[in-house]
């Protein structure tokens, strides 16, 4: 087993001390306040189901594709949703091509938990013939540039891509009602996925001994922070997933406060995504 540090930015002691002491007066290095997000821009590609997110310096691209496959044996009437992440070495020198490292897997699992376990995408409507043919939706996330907080950016990329993805319509016909005809998009308008809610991930970093909390840490702040927590929430006031994998201990009250802040930020990001999607369709 290899150990891969997500951040091999070899930071000098000076840099670390600077960040910590600036935070003591509620200042962050890039001028934000502790609970401010960086600028978020959502652009869609030409094809349905592709998106490019830029969160400050972090850039992530998301692609959604669909395929007809056999369903799992114990879920014969549900489609499947799978998330694949690609940490390209272009983004950060510490990423190596080939097998995904630990942080890549962790990111994939956080996004996966947020989307799949919370039933954001309706998988039952992806069934074509129960027990034989269902749609398998595959989300590919490519990290183009690592400027810190990959989790949030990837999550937004996945959500944006899912909102604009269209799958071809298929009808069942044939002799015994078992043949499936897939209609190309020129003949029949393709259908959107049914998305019940948008689970948005909000990452907090805990820096220093006094456990100062910052939202949306940049790469430098990630190098300093003692622990991080990602909370995935939706606008219905429900918590979809939480991931705090070790690191500095924090008090329960701090966690609840973070969740409350996260729900406000989540509403904000959800509305940004929805506006971007509706603009995409307007044109």
């Amino acid at each position: 087993m290899e150990q891969r540090l997500a951040n091999t930015l070899n930071m000098t002691v000076n840099e670390k001390k600077f960040i910590e002491s600036a935070l003591l007066s509620d200042l962050r290095v890039d001028g934000r306040r502790p609970f401010d997000y960086r600028k978020l821009s959502i652009i869609f590609g030409r094809e349905d189901g592709s998106s490019e997110i830029q969160l400050g310096q972090t850039r992530v691209m998301g692609f959604v594709t669909g395929q007809l496959v056999q369903p799992y044996r114990d879920r014969p009437n549900e489609g499947t949703l799978a998330i694949y992440t690609e940490f390209s070495p272009m983004a950060d020198p510490s990423f190596e091509s080939g097998r995904p490292g630990e942080s890549a897997i962790e990111l994939g699992r956080i996004v996966d938990r947020g989307l799949r376990e919370s039933r954001a995408v309706d998988t039952e409507s992806l069934c074509v013939i129960s027990g034989k043919l269902v749609w398998a939706i595959r989300i590919d996330l490519h990290i183009i540039d690592n400027g810190g907080n990959l989790v949030d950016a990837s999550n937004i990329a996945a959500l944006a891509a899912l909102s604009t993805f269209r799958r071809s319509e298929c009808t069942i016909g044939g002799e015994d009602g078992q043949e499936v005809i897939v209609h190309p998009p020129e003949v029949r308008e393709p259908l959107p996925l049914i998305i019940h809610h948008l689970p948005v991930a909000v990452t907090f970093g805990f820096i220093g001994k006094e456990n100062i909390v910052v939202i949306d840490p940049t790469q430098h702040e990630e190098g300093v922070m003692g622990g991080s927590m990602t909370a995935t929430l939706n606008t219905n006031g429900e918590v979809c997933a939480i991931q705090k994998a070790g690191g500095e201990g924090v008090l329960q009250s701090v966690i609840m406060q973070c969740l409350r802040i996260a729900s406000v930020k989540a509403a904000d990001i959800t509305s940004k995504i929805k506006i971007a999607v509706s603009l995409f369709y307007f044109f």
Binding site: E117, S118, L233, N234, G237, V239, I242, K244, L251, R260
Partner: peptide, 22 residues
Amino acid sequence: LDKVTLLQMDAKLPMDIFENVM
């Protein structure tokens, strides 16, 4: 120290119920 180091949750929960469960 009464501090939380690990916290993982999956599936959906409204926030107030989450506090109880935690």
